[in-house]
Design a protein around this nucleic acid. Structure first.
Length: 554
RNA sequence: GCCCCCGUAGCUCAGCUGGACAGAGCAGCGGCCUUCUAAUCCGCCGGUCGCAGGUUCGAAUCCUGCCGGGGGCACCA
C-alpha cells in the first residue's frame, strides 16, 4: 500500500459518503488527498488532514467529518487501523503485508523505480555553467555544474526530453582582453589593465606559441588574432575536459558568435520591431522591456552599430524556441540576478510567457573554508578556486554531493577539510556506506544461494518497526523525485537519501538479514533480503540522479 | 535609494509548498562490537524558528514593516 493508493482510497470513501448523502461537499470530491508520514511516533504510519481541509466546505466540524471517514476507511483492505486525533487528523496504520509487497515491486522496477511521467512529452532545455572561455571554471560555475546536471537527470526521470546546453560567450570584449593577456604573457609583459592573470594564462600562451612558433614574428595585431583563434579553442577544450571529468557533458555547445554571423540576431531584433517593442533613441536601438516589468528599457543595438550583450540572448532564446523547447531554463549565479527582469521582459516581448517558456534560476554564492577560514579569491591574482582544484581536494563524488545537497537559494560555506574526510561527518559517505553495506549483504546472501526471489517472498513477515520505517521511506522515493523536478530542487533527493540511509542503518542494526552459522534460511531471511534489495535499488537510483557513484565496497 | 537571496540548537543545515508537543548531522557527555562492513547504532544535553504586527480553527511556513548578513543595480560581457 503506497501513499498514492491510500490517497485514492480516501477519495473513494469521500465519494461514497457524498453519494449516500451523509456528506455534502460544496466543490465536489477532491481528486486526491494529502497523505504524509507523521513526524511523531504514535501517529500511525500515515496521516491525512482531509477532514480539516474539507470541514468548512462540508459545513461540519473537522472531527465529525473525520469520524465518518475513519469508519469507512477502517474496512478497506490493507488498512489495519484508523484513528481520529487532535483537531481532526486521521492517523492510519497499514497492514504489514500490504506495506511489504512494495519491496518486490521496487526490485522488479529496478532502474526505473522512482521515474514517473510527470513531465512526459515536455521538451526541456537546461542552460547552465556557460562560463566565459577566458579561464578555468571557478567555484560558482561548479555549483551549477553539479546542480544543473542533477536537475537534468531528475527531469529525465520524470519523463521530460532534456537537452543540456552551454552558451559559449565567444563574441564580446572579454575575448579581446583574454587574447591581449595571452599576448602580453608571451612577450613577458605584465598583465594588461582589465586583463586576466594567473598561471593558466602563461600556460596557454606557451602552448599557443609551441603550436605556432612563427607567432612572435608577427605584428601585435596579427599575433593577438592568432592567440584569440588558438587560445580560445584551447581554453574551451580544457573547460570541456574538466566538466567531463566531473561527469557533466553537454548536448549542445552553443557559440554566441554564430548568432551574430548567421543573422539570427538581426532576425530576432526584426521580430521584436514588428511586434512594436523596439524604438530608436540616442543613435541606439532600444527594447521596451519596462512595459513588461523590467526596471527600465535596455539597449539592443549600440550606437556604434554592434549588438549589446542582450542582443545575443534575444536571438539565443528565439533559437531555442524555434528548436521546439517548451521550457527554457537558465541557471545563473546571484551576481547575475539583475538579468532576470530584462530576460523575463524579453520573453514577454516575444509574446511568450515568462516563468513558463523561460525560467531563470538563481543560485547563491559558494564560499570555501579551509582550516575554518574563508579562502580569499581574486581573479586578477589568479587565486580563484577552480573546478579542478575542488575535485583535487575532495574528489568528484563529494564535490557533486556537497554542491547539490543545499538549496540553491542559500549561499553556502563548504568546509573542504570536512568534505575530504572519510568519516561520518561527511554526508556523502553516510549514504555511500549504506549502499556498500547493502551490497555486502547481497553478496554474502548470494554465497549462501540466497537471492531476493518474488516467488518465495512473504511480505506479511516484515512486521518489525524498523522494517516498516524503511519500507515507508523507500515508497516515498517517486514522490521525492517528482517534487525535486517540480520545484527544481535537487537537494531534496540528497536529503531524502540521507534519511533513507539512516532508516537502513537502523534496520540493519536490529534486524539480522542472513542466517547465522548453521541456521537454516527461513522465510523471514528471504523477506528481509527482498527489503535489502529494494533498498539497493533506491539508494543506487537516487545517487545516480545526483551523478554520485554507488560503491559496492568501501 | 531600489531589486534578489538568506536569518531555525554552540556549528552546518532540513522542514514534505499552513497542520498535531520544532527535526537531522556535527560538536559535548554517556552507552552497545566473539554475530551480515562499528565509516553503523542507542541515550542525554541543547531552540523566545532575527524582531514587531497581521491573515487563519491552526504560521518556522502566507502578508506588511523594521533589524542583521550576502549579492546586484552599464550603449561591459
Amino acid at each position: 500500500m503506497t501513499p498514492e493508493q491510500l490517497s485514492s482510497a480516501i477519495v473513494d470513501v469521500l465519494a461514497t459518503l457524498t453519494d449516500e448523502g451523509s456528506v455534502v461537499l460544496a466543490d465536489g470530491v477532491p481528486s486526491s488527498a494529502s497523505v504524509e508520514r507523521p513526524r511523531q511516533k504514535g501517529h500511525g504510519d500515515y496521516a491525512t488532514n482531509v477532514a480539516l481541509q474539507l470541514a468548512k466546505k462540508a459545513g461540519t466540524n473537522p472531527r465529525a467529518l473525520a469520524e465518518l471517514v475513519a469508519e469507512r476507511l477502517t474496512g478497506v483492505e490493507g488498512i489495519a487501523d484508523v484513528e481520529v486525533a487532535g483537531p481532526g487528523f486521521l492517523n492510519i496504520s497499514v497492514d504489514a503485508g500490504a506495506q511489504g509487497v512494495v519491496a518486490a515491486q521496487i526490485v522488479a522496477a529496478g532502474d526505473a523505480y522512482g521515474s514517473s511521467d510527470a513531465f512526459a512529452g515536455e521538451k526541456v532545455n537546461l542552460e547552465f555553467v556557460s562560463a566565459n572561455p577566458t579561464g578555468p571554471i571557478h567555484i560558482g560555475g561548479v555549483r551549477w555544474a553539479a546542480v544543473g546536471d542533477a536537475l537534468g537527470r531528475i527531469f529525465a526521470a520524470t519523463g521530460a526530453e532534456v537537452t543540456r546546453e552551454y552558451y559559449f560567450n565567444d563574441h564580446g570584449g572579454q575575448i579581446d582582453r583574454f587574447s591581449g593577456s595571452l599576448l602580453a604573457a608571451a612577450q613577458g609583459r605584465p598583465t594588461p589593465e582589465e586583463g586576466y592573470g594567473g598561471q593558466y594564462i602563461h600556460d596557454i600562451a606557451a602552448a599557443v606559441v609551441a603550436q605556432r612558433p612563427d607567432l612572435l614574428s608577427l605584428d601585435d595585431a596579427a599575433a593577438q588574432e592568432t592567440f584569440r583563434a588558438v587560445g580560445v579553442d584551447m581554453m574551451f577544450a580544457e573547460i570541456k575536459k574538466s566538466l567531463h571529468d566531473f561527469g557533466v557533458d553537454f548536448d549542445v555547445y552553443f557559440h554566441e558568435d554564430d548568432l551574430h554571423r548567421s543573422g539570427a540576431v538581426t532576425r530576432a531584433v526584426e521580430r521584436l520591431t514588428e511586434l512594436g517593442n523596439t524604438y530608436e533613441q540616442d543613435g541606439a536601438l532600444w527594447l521596451a522591456t519596462e512595459r513588461f516589468g523590467d526596471d527600465k528599457d535596455r539597449v539592443v543595438i549600440k550606437s556604434d552599430g554592434t549588438g549589446a550583450y542582450l542582443s545575443g540572448d534575444l536571438a539565443y532564446y528565439l533559437d531555442k524556441r524555434e528548436r521546439g523547447f517548451d521550457r527554457c531554463l537558465i541557471m545563473l549565479g546571484a551576481d547575475h540576478h539583475g538579468y532576470v527582469g530584462r530576460m523575463n521582459a524579453m520573453c514577454a516581448a516575444f509574446g511568450d510567457r515568462p516563468g513558463v517558456n523561460l525560467e531563470i534560476l538563481i543560485g547563491q554564492m559558494v564560499n570555501l573554508l579551509r582550516d575554518g577560514q574563508p579562502m580569499r579569491m581574486s581573479k586578477r591574482a589568479g587565486t580563484v578556486v577552480t573546478i579542478d582544484d575542488l575535485v583535487g581536494a575532495i574528489g568528484v563524488d563529494a564535490s557533486r554531493y556537497a554542491l547539490a545537497r543545499y538549496s540553491s537559494d542559500s549561499n553556502i560555506d563548504l568546509d573542504l577539510d570536512l568534505w575530504a574526510k572519510a568519516t561520518s561527518d561527511n554526508p556523502v559517505f553516510y549514504v555511500q556506506y549504506a549502499h556498500a553495506r547493502v551490497a555486502s549483504i547481497l553478496r554474502n546472501g548470494a554465497d549462501l544461494a540466497l537471492v531476493a526471489d518474488p516467488e518465495s517472498f512473504d511480505p506479511a513477515l516484515l512486521v518489525h518497526d524498523k522494517e516498516g520505517e524503511l519500507l515507508r521511506a523507500l515508497v516515498e522515493f517517486p514522490r521525492v523525485v517528482a517534487a525535486a523536478a517540480e520545484l527544481r530542487e535537487p537537494h531534496r533527493v540528497a536529503r531524502y537519501l540521507e534519511d533513507t540511509a539512516g532508516s537502513y542503518h537502523r534496520f540493519y542494526d536490529l534486524c539480522q538479514v542472513l542466517p547465522q552459522g548453521d541456521q537454516e534460511p527461513s522465510d523471514l531471511h528471504r523477506a528481509r533480503l527482498m527489503l535489502v534489495a529494494a533498498t539497493r535499488t533506491v539508494l543506487a537510483n537516487g545517487l545516480a540522479l545526483l551523478g554520485v557513484s554507488a560503491p559496492e565496497r568501501m
